[in-house]
Simulated scan of single mutants.
Amino acid sequence: MLTFARDTCVQRFARCAVVALLAGTLGACTTASAPDLPSAGTNLNQTQPSGPSRWELVRWQQPDGSLREIPHGDNGQPIIFEFNEGIDAAQGTVSGTSGCNRFTGSYGKTDTGIRFDRIASTRMACPPPRMELESSLLKAMQTPFATVGTQPSAGSTGRQIIWKTAGGDLLQFVEREGVGKRGASVDAGGIEKVVYIDSQRVECSGVGKMTCYRWRESPQAPWQLWYGPIEGLDFEPGVAYKLRVREYQVPNPPADASSIRWQLLNVESRTRAK
């Protein structure tokens, strides 16, 4: 079990980080428990090639040790930060989804972590739990995050990082290759295809009520419903897309999941609806 520092530990963080790497615990510095979090450190200890990287927010621990629920979008979309130059870069641009809306801005490394600048987001309304968490996240991004935990990739699990906000919350992110249902395995091959996506999603019924993409194979073909996510697509309502995707067959999918998976290869065109 690994525990993380309260404010009283920040002044002694360098010493605590060494203790964590040697003993796997920061228990001497705190009384709040945070099980299954990565070992502490000030960098990822596993530099990756430059280029885009995607990170999913998987855990939000508040200063009192309690956890905030992290709701997903209508189609199961997680909260994703995409760094155009990778998280190891000194600076770059960042975009993604913050719980309800899409956001864009810039980022840069600091001596102790990362900062976000000029963050702007769309203004779509969502159910209260998603809006409340998004508001808290965007507010936290107005001040720098301190890196208090890191872990290189292990097996199928991507690299992990924990940032501490100015308010004392601990945000745990895991590196992802895409933004679809995590843990799903796919056929290594897949086929490329072009699909046309309507500018608005519609209500549909799966395991429960949800919203689906409308898609077709050509501008003249009838619309069909797509129940799953489109991995890598930051969908903007009011914009129709022509996409090149790779289609995979998912062996033994869960009962509530599709047997077909789409991963975005390229946005061929974007057309704003009139």
Rank of each mutant, 00 (worst) to 15 (best):
T211F: 01
I80T: 13
Q151D: 14
R59H: 12
F4K: 06
A5C: 07
Y196E: 10
K109T: 02
R118T: 12
E134Y: 01
K164D: 11
L44W: 00
F103K: 06
I119T: 09
V207C: 07
R201M: 02
Q48C: 12
Y248S: 07
F173E: 15
V202C: 01
T143E: 15
R12V: 14
F81E: 08
R123W: 00
F173A: 15
Q151S: 14
A154G: 15
A17P: 12
M1R: 00
L171N: 10
T3A: 08
A17W: 09
A90L: 08
R123T: 12
V174H: 14
F83V: 12
W215I: 08
T150N: 07
P71L: 09
Q91R: 10
K109W: 00
C100W: 01
T30I: 03
S95T: 12
A34C: 11
G76L: 05
C9V: 06
S199N: 10
L37W: 13
P128I: 11
V18I: 15
Y107F: 12
S185L: 15
G113A: 10
V19W: 01
R54C: 15
R214L: 10
G92V: 09
G238T: 05
T3G: 06
D169H: 12
A89K: 06
F103W: 03
W60V: 11
R182S: 13
E134I: 01
S121H: 13
T157I: 10
G238V: 02
Y213R: 05
Q61N: 10
S205N: 10
P251E: 09
V267A: 08
I70D: 04
K139Q: 11
I260H: 05
N252R: 02
R246S: 02
P63L: 02
V267E: 09
P127I: 07
G180M: 05
N101Q: 01
R68G: 03
A166S: 14
Y213M: 03
R270V: 09
L57D: 03
F83S: 07
T143H: 11
